[in-house]
Design a protein around this nucleic acid. Structure first.
Lengths: 193, 193
DNA sequence: TTAATTCGTTGACAAATGTCAACGTTCTTT
DNA sequence: AAAGAACGTTGACATTTGTCAACGAATTAA
């Protein structure tokens, strides 16, 4: 169960993990199954756990006054789920996170995460994760103000082809900030070219 | 010259700065004047310095194939300028940063920044800065896919009223991802309501 | 197996946004 | 002081996107 996380940490750090480190990590990260459509986090709650996705697919989204859902994040195995702001600031979240597929995750509290910071590989991994997350957000902001939807979709397809296979197009459309109809037409036009 | 930075660090940390800390900081941050329209960073370069803006206003933007500029960031005194990804990964940037107003900044290299990490208040400030930066980006992504322009503009006006006073509307429009004409009309409609 | 839901597509139309040109005002530069 | 550039606005029109409705195919549930 924890193997993929251990590998992930090793891949995202330079210092090796001792056997003691590994058992500390296994203790801190609690396995949890999340059924399809079951919530991991609901708007208004404080995000008490970060989840490393071992298997499955999850989505993070807000719901507006009219009941429309807006996907801010789509994640699959090997990625993380959770609202960072709520998690680190202990403030109520505005997002919902639920499982799109039957999922298995490893959850950790903030306190336990801080504990693990004493492991060099772990803090290194966390820093790298934070950086990559910020860089990805920056790129998304940039493309949202600079690129036409054709390009935004094409870039997404190239960078994260797995997402297109795992999530239906109306969720991808929401993630890109357009309706499912426009995405359908954009795709139609791309094929022609 | 360094007073505003020192205050900034103290405001963004809980542990106090010793006199030694302060002189280390003063050594690491080099004052620099940047003339109106002068580049601080150009696309293709590696971002060697982060700049704390003591006075003035700067903008960070990309230029597309058609020569159009896209503002990803607008900053004034008390904020930072620099491309984080290029700075931390040592990769060439795709952004330009220049001074919109006559500016005075304090610049620091990555090596010196790492040195200063030994000062608790400094690493605490850096962490908080990174967090706030990521949270702000997250909010911007969310609003870009969820909110109509009226709301995006109104939120900007409420959250960062200083920006509207310091930068002309066509830059604000670009920052929001619309043309200056649409922003002009959006503003016109907002007044009516 | 059948019924119901979800998903993706398409058409018709409305609404929003972009493009281009023109204009007056303000700010800079000479 | 005069000339030029930058800025913000407006109108006309083209293009893009959203909305609503309908449809068939695929998937899921009964």
């Amino acid at each position: 169960m924890h193997e993929s996380l251990i590998k992930y940490i090793e891949r995202h750090s330079t210092t090796p993990l001792s056997e003691r480190d590994i058992s500390s990590i296994k203790e801190a990260f609690i396995p949890k199954k999340i059924r399809k459509r079951q919530y991991f986090l609901q708007a208004g709650e404080v995000c008490k756990y970060m989840a490393f996705i071992v298997k499955g697919a999850m989505r993070q989204y807000s719901v507006d006054d009219k009941g429309a859902e807006h996907m801010v994040r789509l994640s699959i195995e090997g990625w993380w789920a959770g609202d960072r702001e709520s998690f680190t600031m202990l403030t109520p979240t505005i997002y919902n996170i639920d499982a799109w597929e039957e999922s298995e995750v490893l959850i950790i509290t903030k306190a336990d995460m801080n504990q693990l910071t004493s492991i060099p590989a772990m803090s290194e991994m966390a820093r790298q994760l934070d950086n990559n997350h910020a860089f990805a957000l920056q790129k998304r902001v940039h493309s949202s103000i600079s690129d036409p939807i054709e390009k935004r979709y094409a870039d997404l397809a190239k960078t994260y082809p797995q997402l297109l296979e795992r999530f239906p197009q109306h969720l991808i459309a929401s993630y890109l900030g357009v309706t499912k109809e426009t995405l359908s037409r954009v795709r139609h036009n791309l094929v022609k070219k």
